[in-house]
Each structure stands twice: as C-alpha cells, then as structure tokens.
Design a protein around this nucleic acid. Structure first.
Lengths: 246, 246
DNA sequence: ACCCCCTTGATTGTATCCAATTTTTGCGCG
DNA sequence: CGCGCAAAAATTGGATACAATCAAGGGGGT
C-alpha cells in the first residue's frame, strides 16, 4: 500500500516523528535479533523500506550510535554494533551501579498500583518464557525500564534504557538461547522485597540478578581465551547471517 | 583535479569532523557561560559563524540535545537547556552514583603516573581559582572526567562526561560566581585517599564533594519556593542576555 | 601466472532547495 | 489605546542533488 501516485496522495501521518519510527524499528530489529551484530545498515535500503529519505535514516542511525547499538565508521557506513567482551563487562558494571540507585529509590516506596503494574509485567514474561524467542529478552529488559521509570528520574530512565538495550545486544551475541526463564522468578522476588521495604535484600537481589544475566552472557566463561572465543563467535554469527540473507 | 572552482580554494581541513567542530564550539560556549540557558540557537546563524551548512549544525545540535545541553522543540528551534531544579536533583543523584563507581574502581589502583597527572590538573585548577571566571567550573569538571578516563571504562567516561557537563550548566544557572575555590582542596584530598588505597574514605570524600557542589548550586536553598526562584533567575538571565546582545 | 595500478561502481558526506510551521508585523475594530 | 485577526517574514523539517571517498574488478607489466 502507500505507493499510489507520488507521496502527496497519502496523508502524511504526523509529519515529524517518522524518524522516530525508523529509530524504533531498527532498535527493535536489533534487540530482537532480526538484525545481527555486524550487519551493514545502508542508508538507502533502510530509507526505501521505511519510505523516508536518507536524511531521517541518518538521524535515526546517529541516535542509535549514540546509544551504542550501531557503529558508524567514517565513510564506511553504519553497522549493528558488536560489543567486545571487554566493553560488555564495562556495560554490566555501569548497569549494576545504575540499577542499584533505582532499587534504593524504590525500596519501601512502591505504590500498590506500581506493584500491580510490575506483577502484570512479570506475568507477561512468564507466558513468553516458554518459547525461547527474542521476546523473552525484550520483556526482561522492559521490566528494568519499568522500574527505572517508577523512580521518576528521567536521566536514570534514559541511562538504564541504554544499558538494557546494550545488554540485550550482548545477550543476543553471546548467550545461548534457552536460559532466561529463571529471570522471571528473580523479578518476582525483587518486587516482593521492594514492596516490603527490605532495601538491603532488594539491592542484593538485583546485584545477584544482574550477575546472573552477565554470567548467562558467557562473559565469565572466557577469562583468558577471550580473543579466541570472540573469533569463534564472530564466525558463528557470520554463518547465521549468511543463511538469513540467502 | 579536485578543481579549484567555487569554494575549494581553501584547503578543506579534514573533510569530516567539521560537525565535531561545531559541536565542540557550542559545547564550550555553553559550559563557559558564553551562551546562557534559554538562548536561542538558530541553525542559520550558527552555520554562518562556523562556515558550514545547516545540515552539520543540525547534527551538532541533535548531539547536544541528546546530552541534555540543548533543548530541541518541534518546529521551534533549539535553545540552550535550562534544567529545572527537579531535574538538577535527578542529575546530581545519578552523578553521585556514577562517580562512586569510578572511585571504587580507582581506589588503590592508581599508578604513579596517573596520580601525577591528577596532581598536575589540580595545580592548574588552583591557579585558575583566583579569577572566578567560567574556567574554574570547566577545570573542576575536567578533573572528574580525568578520573573517569582512568577507570578504562568507556561507557562510564561517556556518562560521567555528560553529567558533568549538565552539572556545569546547572552551576552556570543557579550558583553564585564566587564559591568554587574549596573544591580544589577536596580534589587534592581525594587523590591522596585514592593513592593510599583508602577506598571507603575516598568514597565518602567524593560523596561529600558532590554534595558540596550540589549545595553550591543553591538546590538545597529552594526546597519549596522553587517555582518563584526559577522565575526570578529567568529574569536575571534575561537581563544579562540583553546586555550581551546590545 | 601473479601483482600493481587504475578505473568503475556503490555508498556516504555535505550543500542546497522546497514545503510546512511558527512567529512577527501590520491593520482594522471595539 | 488595547485586542484580535490576517498576511508576511523568518525558521525549521525533510528531500534531493552533487561531490568525495571507499570497495572491488580489470587490464597491463614483469
């Protein structure tokens, strides 16, 4: 559809947040593993897909790059970022620290409505946990974003949103697919501790939870042969990519 | 070839990071208070000043907006951000948490060379402390960025860089000018604690230091009459701006 | 046959142009 | 003299066009 004659026949949707649409679309595609780390992101092709010009695509790519989801190299185009294991560790370190702030802000201050919202979300996670698709990863991340939003701290929301995205990317790169169900119960226990005002317990739960996620990402498994592992996994990603394109 | 037609008479400096030049220039102007919160940032005028087209200016403005230094409103142009007191508190909260991570990473792990670099920087701060110009604010911020860089954590560097910039903006907005000398000695003591490996002391020093910076920003002084204070200060900024333009 | 250089094609970087929206100016009216 | 409304000017949003750069393939030389 759309198509018809030129572009004036269709009512322009809103005339601005079309760049947001590109941004959201690409972001989701990356997080849900439809686009794999290393995949090239040519401006023309993306623009054609979304029906916008390179201008808006470029804006979206720049935004994604500032969040660390894509890499932009001078005159060589953009590509889905493939974070190294070293930078993955850095990201998890920062994430731990930011989530700790969120927990301290929320412990004992959760309204019943907020708790209910969180529990509803965990329920959705639980129902998605069966199929180990990428939806699981996305929902798990959104739980943390929900927590951040409840602090009312806009900057914290932005930062946690970013690190969660990047962690999703890391998981997509390094984690084995069938392993994210236990996270659901961890989320549930976290809600309980927050609601009961047991701040220290909540902090430790979160600390342990992030640690578990990190471990799931195989980071702990390659303390030395890091370089070799990266090579292997890069090849593996290459294979999948080839299949997808064919 | 490459022709000497039209504008190619001048050797193009590097052909890409010209947008970076715009970004850096604007950023510095904002942090050093040459541009005050609320000042409009028209794309044309900026482009003329820097000798680039609106395209690159837009890119720079977007980047600055993503860091919170400018506000971009739909169809109404960009302006230097004027963070509210509420968001200022949020920013300081996040900053405390991020700086704490940096300190924990550095305590007891500072190389002699790093310590020397830091001391050299503090010396520059000391010499700039006399005149209470904006250079003082900038140098104080750069000390924290230096610390972040020494952790080797690129994400932490980026985040601390952002919050430091935004704190500079907040100080420019709310702080009285003649009050930032004591920070220098706090920086010096922090270096000592880090070098000696007294992690807990270093953490508390930093905590206290950020608290002092925050207090200097008058945030604690306006727990209630917030709205009124903002109005007053907006008027004050208006006056200064008028003088500068005349 | 292999390697190097040059040409060709694809893709990005930047400027300019048109459309759309906001803001200002000017004017008539109460 | 102030207020609302309309037209104009200024400014931004987005697309297109052109220049520059990078990746690859093809001839010629050794």
């Amino acid at each position: 559809m759309a198509a018809s004659s030129s572009r004036s026949a269709t009512i322009r949707p809103l005339l601005t947040d079309r760049s947001d649409a590109v941004y959201q679309g690409l972001r989701r595609a990356i997080i849900e593993q439809a686009l794999l780390p290393g995949d090239k992101l040519p401006e023309d092709a993306i623009g054609d897909s979304f029906g916008v010009s390179r201008t808006l695509v470029r804006s979206a790519l720049t935004r994604l790059a500032s969040e660390g989801l894509v890499e932009q190299r001078r005159n060589r185009g953009a590509a889905v970022a493939s974070p190294s294991l070293a930078s993955a560790r850095d990201i998890f370190d920062v994430r731990r620290q930011l989530e700790d702030l969120a927990i301290r802000r929320l412990a004992g201050r959760l309204t019943p409505a907020q708790a209910a919202t969180l529990r509803r979300h965990v329920e959705r996670e639980r129902s998605a946990a069966g199929r180990d698709g990428p939806e699981s990863i996305r929902l798990a991340g959104e739980f943390h974003i929900l927590l951040a939003e409840m602090t009312g701290n806009a900057l914290l929301v932005r930062y946690i949103g970013e690190v969660v995205s990047r962690c999703s990317l890391i998981l997509a790169l390094y984690a084995r697919p069938h392993s994210s169900d236990c996270a659901v119960s961890e989320h549930a226990r976290l809600i309980e501790a927050l609601e009961a005002g047991r701040a220290e317990e909540a902090r430790q739960l979160m600390e342990h939870h992030i640690g578990a996620v990190q471990e799931r990402a195989l980071i702990e498994r390659a303390p030395e042969g890091e370089q070799r592992l990266r090579q292997v996994l890069a090849d593996y990603a290459q294979t999948i990519r080839g299949e997808a394109e064919a």
